[in-house]
Each structure stands twice: as C-alpha cells, then as structure tokens.
Design a binder for these strands. Structure first.
Length: 570
DNA sequence: GCCGTTTTCGGCCCGACTGTTTTCAGTCG
C-alpha cells in the first residue's frame, strides 16, 4: 500500500460520485483531498494524521483510514454497486458528461459503449428530451475518436503538430502576436491537444484561412472568441484550439490558457482573498479592470515571484520559495554535443560559433566512442586528432572556452570504450549506455556503477535511455543510481532533447545530487533544446546550485582542472 | 465534503460555445 494507491482510490470515488450525480462540490472535495496527498512531500507512513492536511477533513480522513487499515473502502463499494462500470468508459467521450450519461442510462438502460453506439444508430438517443439529432451524431463521432486515437501524444510529436500550425499562422496577414499555451507551453511530457492564443486584426480572415487547410479534418466549434479544429498530420489526429485576443488583455489570456487548471484555481483563490477576481481578460479590482504588460508584472501584482510555465502545475508553486530554482539565464554552457567527427551535422567551429551566439562561456565537444559504429564513433587515433583541433580552435577565441570530451559507450559487459590512458588526456568525459537495453536491472546497474567508479567519468548521459512515448529505456534502479552518484561524485544528466527529457522531472525531485542539463546537439539548431531541459529541472524544483553548468567560466575551468573526487563548490 | 481575519452556514474560479430550446443546461478547459 503506497500513497499512490490512496490517491487512486480518492480519484476513483470522485469519478463514481460524479456519475452518481452527487453534489459537484462534494466530488471536487475528493479530488482536492487526492491533490493534497499528492502535493505533500511525505510518504504514507510518514503522515500520522491525514486530517491535518488542508483539503482533508473528517469524511475523507475516515475513508483513507479505513482503506489503509483494511485495504478496502466501503464508500467505494457502495458506489460501484450503484454505478455500472460501462458508464465510466462513457465519461471519456468528449461532449458526454455525467448528466447526459445518467439520463441515457436511466431512460434507456444502456450501460456499455457498444449499447450506446447501437442506440444512437437506432435513433433512440435523439428521441430523449434534451437530446437531438446533432447530439446523437456527436456521440457516434466521439466513440469513433476514443477508439481510434491515442489519448495523449509525446512532446516531440506535439512539436511537429505545432510546426504545421505555425507555418500557416505565419502567412496570415494581421496577426500581431501568437503563442502556444496549454500543457505544451508548460513542457509537459505528453499533451492531449494544442492550444494557441492569437492577437489578430480580423479573426474571420484567420478562421477562414485556417479551416481551408488540407490538414483540417473537422471543425469542432467556431465562434467570435475561439476556433476549435481537428487536424491530421502523418496519419495522427489531434485537436487544436485557437483563442482570439483583442487589446490589452493579451497577457491575462496567455496566463489563463497556459494553466494548469489547478494553478489557475489557486491564483483565483489568492485574488479572491484580496477582494479581486482573475479572468482571462484581466484582474477585476475595486478600481476597475487591471491588465498587464508581462507575466512577471502579473505575478508581482499578487506579491509572487515570476513563476515559469513549467512550474505551474499543482498550485504548491505559489506557496514555496522558488527564488533559488534554476532558470534558462543561469545556464553558462553546454557539455554534450556532437560534430561531423561522429554523427553530428556541423563542424567543431560551427558548434562554437552557435554557442557564442547563445552567449555561452564554455562548451564541451563530446562525440561518440569507437564501439558505436552506427554513429561513426571515434577510434583512439581520431579522438586524439580531434583533441588537437579542439585545442587549436580554443586558442582562437577569447570569449568562450572549448573543451575536449567524449560521450563514451559503456559496453554490454561493463567495460568502458576507451582506456584510462586515453581518457586522462581529455578535459571532460561523459559515459552512456547505447546498447543491450534488454539486460536485467542487475546487469544494467553493474554497467552504470563501473562507469561511475571510473575517476575520469564526470557524468552519465541520459541515464535511463527512455524515449518519451516510444520506449521505456533500460531497467535502472533509481535509488541505487542516485546513491552511487552521490558516493562517487558523479553528475547525472538531464538530457534536454524533447524526445528524451532523461532524467525525468519526477525522477529528480527531492534528490541530493549534482545535475547537468545538456542538449546532446547533433546540429547547431539543437542547441535551442536547452529550455526543455531547464523546464524539466524546474518541474523537479531543482536549485541553481545543484546544476553543474550554471558555474561561471572560471569556476567551470577550476572544476575541470580538479580531481573528480574534490568538492565542486570549493 | 471542506473551510473560516466578513466563521459554524453558505459558499466553493470563471467564461465560451453547442445544442436544444425560446432562456438555458451541459460540457469543456
């Protein structure tokens, strides 16, 4: 029995209560109780009295206590006796909510998706009062969608959908400004849909242009203020919402539609306690509607520091001190990138020039090692050749330090791809697993530990090998990984490539080790990925002092010239 | 069901759009 089990129980009760048409505020109380448990940093055993948490009172405390002690819940049992499980599946259908489902169930006795489909096809649903032809069609369409489309897409897929949309927006005259909002802006690992806000002179022209595009498969809704479409790209379908903004409310609309919902509820409660009201149009104050020039100004107005989008999730971000959390401007260099020596697209010099444009103080060139043949990994000789070239280029620049490194393979049996004799000549060594993902956790941990034990290996790249929504990665014992990293002074990477985001924000929260965030760029354009990695760190509430590449140029040079075992911040 | 510096009852964030209805309920974000 873990905290997660209790959270799931409370959320399950909320869903069943919703379908049982209980008071919506009662339903919401169960959801809030679940959120309160989630936000609390402690484990189940560490909490002695649940009712001391804000949002948990006598009722939910009793439910939790019964469940923890007996493993059962009489409240849930009563509900599951009353509500057929098929109705839970119906809740997933867009346009169908608890009220309509209850009505269909009560009037027609339908309690399965299949039964619902048949009833629509026989026009039984449209015969009910309050239902019509259109509702029936929409239900059939919803069933189709739910059966044929993934619920959420990984962030990398979301970014491709985004490109399809922005390519069109960029051609529409009169568009003054637009932003992607929603979970995409918050850098969630997966998103259900795409959201944009658009400041445009003529929303009708915008709407007309957009709905004429070949990729539009359905107009979900269309009004003066918003447009909602279903689009298709590369055989995948997703919903896209546009919100039209006029005048001075842009920042308030941006803030509102960035979410999360929980974050917004929290902000509105704060406003309300001051006698004010937040909406997407601004803040209603006793002196009239207040609008803002920036989100910084918006948060400062409520006596809060600027909260980056990535951190706007549970609402707890408004309660805690976030002044020391890392931000993109703290990043002084990129320690993991590839060149044409292995599988990168650009030369060392091109990478240096691109890094200078980012105002970085230092970079490390880290091509693949010899065993990674598919990526043209460097033999000992080519690595030493490259080292010479890096040294020469470094000499040419006053404003940036260019260090020689490698992303060295940890081979299947745990041996490292270069000898210590070779490694000792490099400035900075990264180790990574690129092969034999199917090994047991024990074998994988043996490989990672061998690398961490090596005196030249400074950091482990993409420690789990996962690709979001594509593969889980190899089996890593996370507790052991963090313990061993701490023991050996080995730094763990947040790989900023949006396919990876590895380690994940969930994994790094509340850990006491050093991290580094790097793009793993294979092209100069990829250096732009850095902000995804920083967002991941922000979601894990990681402080600037815990991130290696926030060190100044001099501090980083000192770190490189020191033994791995010595303290970084000495 | 939870909560309280307008407190033990009466609120609980707020607005857009659709569809069915003829003034609004339901759903969504």
């Amino acid at each position: 029995m873990t905290k997660k089990d209790v959270i799931r129980l409370l959320e399950k009760i909320a869903v069943y209560m919703e379908l049982n048409l209980e008071n919506p505020f009662k339903v919401s109380a169960y959801r809030k109780a679940a959120a309160a448990l989630e936000t609390d940093g402690r484990t189940l055993d560490e909490i002695s009295d649940f009712s001391e948490l804000k949002g948990i009172g006598k009722g939910t405390n009793d439910v939790i206590t019964e469940f923890v002690q007996t493993g059962k819940s009489s409240v849930l049992k009563d509900l599951t006796d009353k509500v057929p499980p098929g109705l839970i599946r119906m809740l997933k259908l867009p346009t169908l909510g608890p009220k309509k489902i209850a009505k269909i169930h009560d009037a027609l006795g339908i309690d399965t998706l299949e039964g619902l489909k048949a009833a629509c096809e026989n026009n039984e649903v449209s015969a009910l009062s309050g239902f019509g032809k259109k509702t029936e069609e929409n239900i059939l369409k919803s069933i189709e969608t739910v059966l044929n489309r993934p619920e959420r897409y990984p962030i990398n897929r979301i970014l491709k959908f985004k490109q399809v949309i922005t390519d069109v927006i960029d051609t529409i005259p009169g568009v003054e400004r637009y932003d992607m909002t929603g979970s995409g802006r918050r850098t969630k690992e997966t998103s259900r849909d795409l959201d944009f806000i658009v400041k445009v002179e003529d929303y009708q022209l915008f709407t007309q242009t957009m709905i004429e595009q070949n990729f539009v498969t359905e107009i979900v809704s269309q009004g003066d203020k918003k447009l909602s479409l279903e689009i298709e790209h590369d055989f995948d379908k997703i919903n896209v919402d546009f919100r039209f903004v006029n005048g001075d409310e842009y920042i308030s609309t941006l803030q509102h539609f960035t979410g999360s919902k929980e974050h917004n509820v929290k902000m509105r409660q704060i406003a309300k306690s001051r006698g004010e009201k937040i909406s997407e149009y601004g803040v209603e104050t006793p002196d009239g509607l207040k609008t803002f020039q920036s989100e910084e100004e918006f948060y400062h107005y409520f006596d809060l520091p600027y909260i980056p989008p990535a951190m706007r999730e549970t609402g707890k971000e408004t309660d805690i001190d976030i002044s020391e959390i890392v931000s993109l401007s703290d990043i002084k260099g990129d320690l993991h990138m590839h060149t044409v020596y292995s599988d990168g697209a650009n030369s060392i010099r091109e990478m240096v020039e691109a890094a200078r444009e980012k105002n970085y103080s230092y970079i490390v060139i880290t091509d693949h090692s010899k065993s990674l043949r598919v990526a043209n990994g460097l033999s000992d000789e080519r690595l030493l050749e490259q080292l010479e070239e890096i040294r020469a280029i470094d000499q040419e620049y006053d404003d940036i330090d260019v260090y020689s490194g490698t992303e060295m393979d940890i081979l299947a049996d745990g041996t490292l791809d270069y000898s210590d004799e070779i490694l000792s000549q490099l400035d900075y060594v990264i180790a990574a697993i690129h092969s034999s993902f199917q090994q047991s956790e024990e074998d994988i941990m043996h490989r990672l530990k061998t690398a961490m034990d090596n005196p030249y290996v400074r950091h482990i790249a993409h420690p789990t090998g996962r690709l979001i929504g594509v593969r889980d990665g190899y089996p890593v014992n996370m507790e052991e990984l963090f313990d061993y990293a701490e023991k050996t002074n080995t730094i763990l990477e947040i790989n900023a490539n949006p396919q990876r985001l590895d380690l994940s924000s969930d994994a790094i929260a509340n850990q006491n080790v050093m991290f580094t965030v790097n793009t793993d760029a294979h092209h100069t354009d990829h250096l732009d990925f850095m902000h995804y990695g920083v967002s991941t760190l922000q979601k894990g509430f990681v402080k600037t002092s815990q991130v290696l590449n926030t060190l100044s140029r001099e501090e980083f040079k000192a770190y490189i010239n020191k033994d791995k075992q010595s303290d970084i911040n000495e």
